[in-house]
Structure formats: structure tokens, C-alpha cells
Design a protein around this nucleic acid. Structure first.
Length: 275
DNA sequence: TACCAGGTAAAAA
DNA sequence: TTTTTACATGGT
């Protein structure tokens, strides 16, 4: 099997846990011990291997996408060196050694996924998102290609409410598809300009923009302070029994600069493991 | 059965 | 300007 080498340390099971923790993800499908995803024209199967992962098939076009997908661009050594000076992170870094946050490789998919997860539980969000994928995506072998922006431009909001979207979220998703925002072009902008460009669209608030910075662009300083899961995690590790406010979580985030994104992922994974 | 869940925008105060 | 409310599904 073709090996794709990744920087050590890398823990495949730990890093892909979010694709299994809240139910099945038809676009990032855990199947028979491997992660299946449509890359380019076909489905790729990724499995763990010494020194990296096995990827089948693997070619020059697939390789950079899979590298990005698996979070190869994160520098864990620098983060661990930083974490060593902070007791909570130091413990989490040790416990979760090799965790590389996966990256959402497609910007449209990343935003739509966040919209589906607004306000509702992640279990509910996965269920609704899977119906969107089944209806508007294309099945390869096991996994589906996530619905393209071009396909959802032609969708009517009523088709989305029929599969469980709220009326507003249906408008948000179709509105995003039909907007003139160049999603791929956001990569060239600094964090604050990405946020203002995204939040200018209806249905995209600060939370959704923060997760776009964190999960799609992989920006080091992204810190979704408004995220309920992150608030719970920060409250557990840095507060007392009560839920810290968004402002308090934002303030605590400053101590992780410039590793807020990795810190957020380790705190969330730590919470998931602890509960 | 209620109630809550990795928000957002619009109405009301 | 700040607070309250509607939204709609899935799990417990």
C-alpha cells in the first residue's frame, strides 16, 4: 500500500475521532478501520501505518489534499514546546500526543457544515447533514462527495426544509451558494478580514467564521470563544463548576497565543475523553 | 415527556 | 443599546 509519510508524532485514531464521535459522517466516512473520502474523481481510503498513513489510491493530485486533510501543516513540536510551560496543556499534550486536528479541505463544505451545527446538538447536525449529502451529493463507493456549491445554487430552500433544515438555515445555505463571495479567495486574507467577509453574509456569525478559520484555513490563532463545547472545556480545565462566559473564554484564549487553534482542539478532545 | 444541544437574526424592551 | 425570542431536529 502507498505510504504517505506524516511528521511524527501522529495518532490516526485519535486524530480522526471527531468523524466518529457524533455519528456517521457520509463525507468523511469511517469504514472498516479506515477513513474514506472522495478526493478529486474517486474515493480514497486512508488507514494507519508506521510513519504515517496508507492511502489507496495515491497520486500526485491526491497527496497534497490528504496531507491537508490530516492536518500535516500543524507543527506539533512547536506546540508541545509551548504547552510544556502551561500545566493544563502540558497534561493534555501528553495524554493526546499525536493528535493532529483534521482540516476541512473544501471551504464551501466547511461553512455549510458549521451552519448545520448552529445551535443544535452535533448528533442532530450530523443526521441532518447526512440527509443533505445523500440528496445533493454523489456517492462514490462507500463515501459521498459533499454537495458542491454549484449543485446547491440550483437547490430551493424548500428542498432543504424537507430534509430537516429550519427555514432560516435553508435560506442561509442556498444564500451562501448563490452569493458572490469568493470562498477560495479568503485564504489570501488575514484573519479579521476573513471574519468580516464571512459575517457579512446572512446566517454566518462570529462562531461560524471562527470555525472556518480554525478548521478550514488552519489559522494558528483561531479561537472560537463562543463555542459551547470550547466553553465547557475551558470551564472544566480552568474554571470551577460553572460555565464560563464567552468573554472569560476569550480572555483565557490569549494565554495560548499564538497556538489558540491547537489549544482549542486539545481542550475539546480532552473534554471528550474526560466525559 | 420535557429539555437541551459546538448560534443567528430580528423583535422587543 | 441590551435582552428576549423563534427556529426545528435528535438524543436522553
Amino acid at each position: 500500500m502507498p505510504l504517505l509519510d506524516l511528521p511524527e508524532p501522529y495518532d490516526f485514531e485519535l486524530s480522526t475521532a471527531r468523524y466518529r464521535a457524533f455519528g456517521t459522517d457520509l463525507a468523511n466516512l469511517w469504514h472498516d478501520g479506515g477513513l474514506h473520502r472522495v478526493v478529486g474523481r474517486g474515493e480514497v481510503r486512508i488507514t494507519t501505518a508506521p510513519g504515517g498513513v496508507d492511502v489507496e489510491p495515491l497520486d500526485r493530485e491526491i497527496e497534497p489534499v490528504v496531507r491537508k486533510l490530516l492536518g500535516a501543516e500543524f507543527d506539533l513540536d512547536e506546540f508541545y514546546a509551548f504547552a510544556a510551560g502551561e500545566p493544563v496543556l502540558a497534561a493534555l499534550a501528553q495524554e493526546l500526543r499525536g493528535l493532529r486536528p483534521p482540516i476541512a479541505v473544501e471551504p464551501f463544505e466547511s461553512v455549510v457544515t458549521s451552519i448545520t451545527a448552529q445551535q443544535v446538538s452535533l448528533h442532530a447536525a450530523f443526521a441532518i447533514r447526512n440527509r443533505l449529502i445523500e440528496q445533493f451529493g454523489i456517492r462514490a463507493v462507500h463515501a459521498y462527495a459533499f454537495p458542491t456549491r454549484g449543485r446547491l445554487v440550483r437547490a430551493e430552500p424548500e428542498e432543504l426544509t424537507a430534509i430537516g433544515f429550519s427555514g432560516r438555515k435553508a435560506e442561509y445555505v442556498v444564500g451562501l451558494a448563490r452569493s458572490d463571495l469568493d470562498l477560495a479567495g479568503l485564504e489570501a486574507l488575514p484573519d479579521d478580514e476573513v471574519k468580516s467577509a464571512l459575517t457579512a453574509l446572512p446566517g454566518i456569525g462570529e462562531w461560524t467564521a471562527d470555525w472556518f478559520l480554525a478548521r478550514h484555513l488552519g489559522r494558528a490563532r483561531a479561537w472560537p470563544a463562543g463555542d459551547l463545547g470550547l466553553r465547557k472545556a475551558v470551564s472544566r480545565f480552568y474554571g470551577d463548576s460553572s460555565l464560563l462566559s464567552i468573554g472569560e473564554v476569550r480572555a483565557i484564549g490569549e494565554r495560548f497565543d499564538p497556538f489558540q487553534n491547537l489549544a482549542a482542539h486539545y481542550l475539546l478532545a480532552g473534554l471528550l475523553r474526560a466525559t
